[in-house]
Nucleic acid binder design. Structure first.
Lengths: 227, 227
DNA sequence: ACCTGAACACCGTTCAAGT
DNA sequence: ACCTGAACACCGTTCAAGT
């Protein structure tokens, strides 16, 4: 079958731009996402993009928006019934669902931290969490605290600082032994069996759930005290 | 007293560059810190900086390093004796001390998240935390989990997403009422008395401590179970 | 209505040249 | 040894012009 290219090229649209941007960022990282590079990807001139989206920030916002739309699908919608007995596993499941999506777009957390303005679907995600906790019987005050306590964990990630940098000049364990003896001892003791981190910031699934469960546990205790 | 400028200007040094960079970033934000702007501040040509520091990343690393040196002073050194009875308040105090310093340099967390390679003094900070927990009687395994669970809270910050963006186009509470009813209800109920956030990511001191205490509580429980 | 080319005002950085 | 000027290879974006 001979490859038959369409004579007339598909017209540019906002969706096509965002789709190509998403694919490019997934494939080559967020730094590769420049207006000129994106235009190349679309077989178009850089300035053509500006006809469909006002500027680069709008593209980045659109990507976050798209990601949270994926999350909405992944968790089966943001509206959920919950009771004082079920909110905790329900929230846990929702957060881990969000995490599964972010693992497909690891550069998205980086966008969420900075630009920071809450895009609509992201706001609806948070709204869903609030609704879940409210249905679980928590006071708005406790819910408010809970959102702060969870922080970025609410979305399924928590940035940490890797002990391993990709640089070639990374000092060996022996070299740092005297500068950071406790750290070295810990690393020697703990078999860090999965050096490949899952979400850019080196929090693997087990560690993520460990921290999440402590927080859920503490929130549940405070919720029980409220009642 | 007439202002008497020295005829020969003070020679450039690594420390002078870093000092000016720190001051500039504190005053005008990290985005204002460009090589040309920094050179202006030093009364020098942009390229002169490269004689004292290899590149911009080295400047950013140096700033993180300087910040953690400030933290070391603030908390009275990283070495601390602790016992199973005292590790928890000791760690709490250390983290809140780190936070006080970061509040003076709010742009530093942003640097720590991305570049990410652990600068020496930062490694020593973590080492101190490990030493503290070890002296407190925790196993290396639990300590390892603890570092992950604390995440960036270990350093005194936790990024969250502000509900308030500085944009003029921020939708009012009424406008978002139907899109995010639960969120709107919570905001209406909770008197968010301090709209001015403390550390860029809108986590004020109270909220930070709330989350921190839940984590410390959970860690203490697991530590007790270990013994 | 949709896309383009040239240009502007920035970046970080290289490199040969000044003193 | 220390600093500089010109230049390079990039950015995002504006604006007048094409079809």
């Amino acid at each position: 079958m001979p490859p038959r290219k369409p004579a007339v090229r598909e017209p540019l649209t906002r969706d096509r731009v965002l789709g190509a941007a998403m694919e490019l960022a997934d494939r080559e990282g967020i730094d590769a996402l420049t207006m000129r590079r994106l235009a190349d990807e679309l077989g178009v001139e850089a300035m053509s993009i500006y006809y469909h989206l006002p500027n680069k920030d709008a593209i980045l916002e659109g990507l976050v928006e798209t990601t949270f739309a994926e999350i909405e699908t992944e968790v089966g919608g943001f509206a959920t019934a919950a009771t004082p007995d079920t909110w905790r596993p329900a929230l846990r499941e929702r957060i881990l669902g969000a995490r599964r999506v972010l693992l497909r777009h690891r550069w998205v957390p980086g966008l969420m931290e900075n630009g920071g303005s809450l895009v609509p679907t992201m706001a609806r995600y948070v709204d869903g969490v609030v609704g879940l906790l409210r249905a679980g019987g928590l006071s708005y005050d406790l819910i408010h605290h809970a959102l702060h306590a969870l922080g970025s964990r609410m979305y399924g990630f928590s940035q940490e600082l890797g002990l391993d940098d990709g640089d070639d000049s990374t000092p060996s364990l022996e070299e740092m032994m005297d500068a950071v003896p406790n750290l070295a001892a810990m690393l020697a003791d703990v078999v860090h069996d999965d050096p490949e981190s899952t979400l850019g910031w080196c929090d693997d699934q087990t560690e993520f759930e460990f921290g999440l469960d402590i927080l859920l546990e503490g929130l549940a205790r405070r919720a029980a005290e409220e009642r």
